[in-house]
Amino acid sequence: MARILIVDDKKFMRNTLKNILTSDNHVVAGEAKDGKAAVRLYRELRPDLVTMDIIMPEMSGLEAIKIIRAEFPDAKIIMCSAMGQQKMIIEAIEAGAKDFLVKPFDDCRLLEAINRVLK
């Protein structure tokens, strides 16, 4: 059971992720709808893992991951995006993402990635 911060600008996507995570006995520590809120909540909550969208208003997931990883080098972040462009995947991994999932993703693939990253 892990404490997970969900970051996505779409409410339905946050709800979808929440349902998948809670069905696998994980705890949703918090939710953010942009990168700025994600950074603030990460500092407050210190979750075990973050699922982070890339394209968001205010601050992108790529910007947020860079700030979080600079302050917390051991932060575990899985990027989730509808855009599976090679360039973005490489940027996310270089910024410190532990995995990259392309939306819409399979529930099993998400849980597999989470469990692998948490080990």
Rank of each mutant, 00 (worst) to 15 (best):
V28K: 08
V39R: 01
M52W: 06
L62D: 05
S60H: 12
K98Q: 07
I89D: 04
E63L: 03
D8E: 00
H26V: 12
D99R: 11
Q86P: 00
K66C: 06
I68S: 00
M13Q: 01
A29Q: 13
D34K: 05
M13A: 02
L111E: 03
D107H: 14
K66Y: 13
I78M: 00
C80N: 07
Q86I: 11
N15F: 08
K33G: 09
L45C: 01
I65E: 01
R69N: 07
L5W: 08
F12Y: 07
K87R: 15
V27F: 03
M52P: 05
A97G: 02
I67F: 15
L110S: 01
D8T: 02
N25W: 09
R116Y: 10
I54L: 13
L101F: 01
L101Q: 03
M56I: 06
F105H: 12
V28S: 03
K11W: 05
I68Q: 01
Y42K: 00
R69K: 12
D8H: 04
K87H: 15
A82K: 14
R43M: 01
G96E: 09
L21K: 03
M52D: 02
L62E: 02
L5Q: 02
A113C: 09
Y42V: 00
A75T: 05
E44H: 07
R3Q: 07
I65R: 03
I93H: 05
L110T: 00
A113W: 00
A32I: 13
S81R: 02
E44R: 12
A92F: 02
D99Y: 06
F72C: 02
P73T: 01
A38R: 08
Y42S: 00
G35C: 12
A95I: 11
R40D: 14
N15Y: 00
D8C: 01
A64T: 10
K119T: 12
K36G: 05
D99N: 13
N15M: 14
A113K: 10
F105E: 11
N115K: 14
L17P: 03
S81E: 03
I54Q: 07
A75P: 09
M59N: 08
A82Y: 09
L101P: 04
A64H: 10
P104Q: 04
E58W: 15
I90W: 11
N19D: 13
R14N: 06
A70C: 15
R46C: 10
F72D: 06
T22S: 13
G84Q: 04
I114T: 07
T51A: 06
D24Y: 10
P73Y: 05
C108G: 14
R109D: 14
R46Q: 14
K18V: 09
A64K: 11
R46K: 15
R40L: 15
L62M: 06
A82E: 13
F105C: 13
K36Y: 10
I89Y: 08
E71T: 02
A2T: 10
K87A: 14
V7C: 05
P104D: 07
R46M: 10
R116P: 09
K87W: 15
R109W: 10
I114V: 14
M1N: 10
I20M: 04
A38N: 04
A29N: 10
R116H: 07
D74F: 12
I77T: 07
